[in-house]
Design a protein around this nucleic acid. Structure first.
Length: 771
DNA sequence: CCACATAATCTTTTT
DNA sequence: GATTATGTGG
């Protein structure tokens, strides 16, 4: 049943049919239904414990997904509930899709009625049903991060706040965190309010919410926040939903934030049949408001909760598990699990120190090719990086090698300019109050409605407290605007009115084509002679094709807002390239973990912003990375790295030292017969890694800092002095990597050198020698 | 109002 | 290096 408002399933649950208590849905005997076979005793316990609150602590690779899906199948097979009475919440769309598929594979079509989805999509579905109760209309828009930022920027500008000192991004972060905690503007604690954004945080938050209301829109955080406040204010509505859902399942419980937790708790108070699955060691979304505390506190929150631990690992070799366990043991405040495996063979984790990022990419590339020659599929290998931009070096390398690769979570289809423009048109048609969408395309294609016209519209809209399109339709009746913009604007207003009138009359695909055509948007790209234009037109066609699989424009917009993944699957065998975050839940035979350097991983910002807590989250990220590997795990770090255009020396990540030596084989590491170039690099590189935009930080942590007392400081200092004193401007020098060059600038231990081949670079003096 | 040039900033991780 | 904010001239 696809009608989101259908609550007909609120009737009593199906009681087990007489005489079928011992029979499955298909009438076969249920000694051990086939789907239960092959589960270990603990897994089976987790499947069969359907009544009352349950927390399943599932370590990496312990068959978590299998337990979840089997549990759903079990509930249905035993006829404990109709599909529509089951709520299954996941964190990502990918996980939701997988769950749907796997349950479907076990029990067949019954999945259709089940509420399987992400927190956000399920909350959105509920909110559409009750929009009026929170001051929205049923057709409200869901804003993405981009829209959110533009709106906040407008608000900040209206408040005359300095954009440099108070960037919209920062305000977005503050507001998002409040929403994550379930705090509406009036509930933000006074102390925090005083601190945030020059004391104006809450006021800005309130203005933002007001604006959202007039735009008939909400952001991601609102989806949950609105539903939770709705539940709290309308007990009858809550009771309705509590009665509906007999069983609730939650995946990745360690990643839930307070808002999600509150929402779940309210819903679960009905049946009390809530099962949460998670692993505190894999909590890696603290920066997004996730509260590990939710999982640590489960027993107190849900009285009589049963805790089941899944500890037998079916994925990795003992060395991989040993390395991961040893590392994660450095964290405090864990619930504690002991992963074990029956497998007792396998290779050690490898650890390599390399000269620079290029060499690292080269070595990884060689290894990938070697494995391929050995018969491994490319798709059985993955490179997991800390931050998105790190994939680039590897892409370059694979491109030159001709090795197919696939970047996961990169730029998404729906984030392309032309797609977003087209979507903006659709948004205005479906939801005329959506100013952000209108602004986006008001002058796209160019119509001569520039800043000046927009300003007039805005100020009129603000004083009258009406949305832009309404403001426009009134303004064209006045002589406020000059004749030319006025008539153009009239055309736009009339266009949208016409399209809107056709929403129910015309099939939505035809309407979409009409809009793109009559607006001149398609023509704009057809006239464009640039290289990208054909591709953009192709994407527009693709967009229209995608529309066909949806019932309406509105349904399509909802999908795009909430299911913005581009898991196109992709054809052909290819190496995976993704961030550690994106890798959670996946597994590969061979995993490469490059870039294990202080500042990169653990990331500088994580430690600066959240201190020890941040560091522990980074360590959990490392744990997630290692445990993705089934058979081989290769960790590496580079002594030098180019950030933008600057060369930086770096020291190996502290996590490298924390790996239990028994499970690690060091290749090419210092003192172990590795590359001598590497030895030089890493012994001399005196700098803690930092990015150029952290100049202040560099001044503090540089080894020139007088605060330093470690022995390595002394060494570095000597090198600095030596370097600074021995090179002079204009002198000819030689660099291992860049070859010969001329010194242009001396700045303590840093030299700016004009290399004959490589051009102008900044390098550490210690890497340069006299010819 | 637009087109082009220059300057500044950027990057953690994502529903 | 790339994208985006700002400024200048048509």
């Amino acid at each position: 049943m696809s009608d989101p408002f259908d609550l007909s399933a609120l009737e009593a649950p199906p009681s087990p049919l007489p005489g079928t208590a011992g029979t499955g849905a298909s009438g076969r005997p249920v000694g051990t239904p086939p789907y239960l076979a092959g589960l270990n005793p603990v897994q089976r316990e987790a499947v069969e414990a359907t009544e009352g609150p349950v927390l399943v602590l599932a370590g990496a690779g312990t068959g978590k997904t299998r337990v979840l899906t089997t549990r759903l199948a079990y509930i249905l097979d035993r006829r404990l509930a109709y599909p529509s009475q089951i709520l299954s919440v996941t964190f990502t769309n990918k996980a939701a899709r997988e769950m749907r598929e796997r349950v479907g594979a076990i029990i067949g079509g019954a999945v259709e009625g089940m509420w399987i989805g992400t927190f956000h999509s399920i909350a959105a579905r509920m909110l559409r049903r009750h929009a009026e109760a929170v001051g929205l209309k049923q057709n409200f828009s869901i804003l993405d991060t981009d829209d959110q930022l533009r709106l906040l920027k407008q608000i900040l500008q209206a408040e005359n706040m300095d954009e440099k000192r108070w960037p919209p991004r920062a305000l977005a972060a503050v507001i998002d965190r409040w929403k994550d905690k379930g705090l509406t503007p009036d509930k933000v604690p006074a102390a925090e309010a005083a601190r945030a954004f020059d004391g104006k945080g809450v006021q800005l938050y309130r203005t933002y919410q007001d604006r959202l209301a007039t735009l008939n829109a909400c952001d991601f955080g609102d989806l949950l926040l609105h539903v939770t406040t709705l539940f709290q204010a309308h007990k009858d509505v809550l009771a309705e939903w509590q009665r509906k859902f007999r069983y609730i399942l939650v995946d990745e419980y360690q990643d839930t934030n307070v808002s999600q937790y509150l929402w779940l708790r309210l819903l679960a108070q009905g049946s009390r049949n809530i099962a949460c699955v998670g692993d505190d060691d894999q909590s890696i979304y603290g920066w997004r408001g996730a509260e590990v505390g939710n999982i640590l506190r489960f027993e107190q929150d849900f009285e009589g909760a049963r805790i089941i631990r899944l500890e037998q690992n079916y994925r990795s070799t003992p060395h991989i598990l040993g390395a991961a366990s040893g590392l994660i043991a450095k964290n405090q405040g864990r619930l504690g699990k002991t992963l074990w495996t029956e497998v007792n063979e396998g290779e050690k984790i490898t650890l390599r120190g390399l000269w620079d990022g290029d060499e690292e990419a080269r070595v990884v590339g060689e290894e990938v090719e070697a494995r391929q020659r050995a018969g491994d599929r490319l798709a059985s290998m993955a490179i997991l990086v800390r931050a998105g931009f790190q994939t680039r070096l590897f892409e370059d390398r694979f491109l030159t090698l001709g090795v197919p690769y696939r970047v996961y979570g990169g730029l998404r289809f729906y984030e392309r300019q032309e797609v977003r423009d087209a979507m903006a048109y659709f948004r205005v048609v479906c939801q005329p109050d959506d100013d952000l969408a209108l602004e986006r395309i008001l002058n796209t294609p160019k119509r001569g409605l520039g800043d000046a016209t927009l300003q007039v519209l805005h100020s009129y809209g603000r004083t009258e407290r009406i949305p832009l399109l309404q403001a426009a339709s009134r303004l064209i009746e006045t002589d406020e605007l000059k004749p030319k913009p006025r008539s153009t604007l009239r055309k736009v207003v009339e266009d949208f009115a016409r399209w809107r009138a056709l929403i129910d009359g015309l099939p939505h695909v035809e309407l979409a084509e009409m809009i793109l055509d009559e607006s001149g948007y398609t023509a704009m790209w057809q006239a464009d002679r640039s290289a990208e234009a054909p591709g953009r037109l192709e994407n527009l066609k693709e967009l229209v094709r995608a529309l066909e699989t949806f019932e309406s424009l509105a349904a399509f917009l909802e999908h795009v807002a909430l299911v913005m993944d581009n898991d196109q699957g992709g054809e052909g065998d290819a190496v995976g390239l993704m961030t550690l975050h994106a890798a959670k839940g996946l597994e590969f035979d061979t995993v490469f973990l490059p870039g294990w350097e202080e500042g990169v991983f653990p990331h500088q910002r994580a430690m600066e912003e959240k201190g020890t807590e941040g560091l522990e989250e980074e360590r959990r990220l490392a744990y997630v990375g290692i445990t993705r590997a089934r058979r081989r795990c290769n960790i590496s770090f580079a002594a030098n790295r180019r950030i933008y255009n600057q060369w930086q020396s770096s020291i190996p990540s502290r996590f490298v030292e924390e790996l239990p030596p028994d499970h690690v084989e060091r290749l090419g590491a210092p003192g172990l017969g590795g590359s001598t170039r590497f030895n030089e690099g890493w012994n001399q590189g005196g700098f803690v890694y930092d990015a150029p935009w952290l100049k202040a930080e560099r001044a503090r942590t540089s080894f020139r800092s007088p605060a330093g007392t470690k022995q390595i400081d002394g060494t570095a200092k000597r090198l600095d002095e030596q370097a600074a004193s021995t090179f002079g401007v204009g002198e000819r020098v030689f660099h291992q990597k860049f070859g010969p060059g001329t010194v242009r600038l001396v700045e303590h231990d840093r030299l700016e050198i004009d290399f004959d081949k490589a051009g102008n670079k900044k390098v550490l003096a210690s890497f340069v020698e006299k010819p």
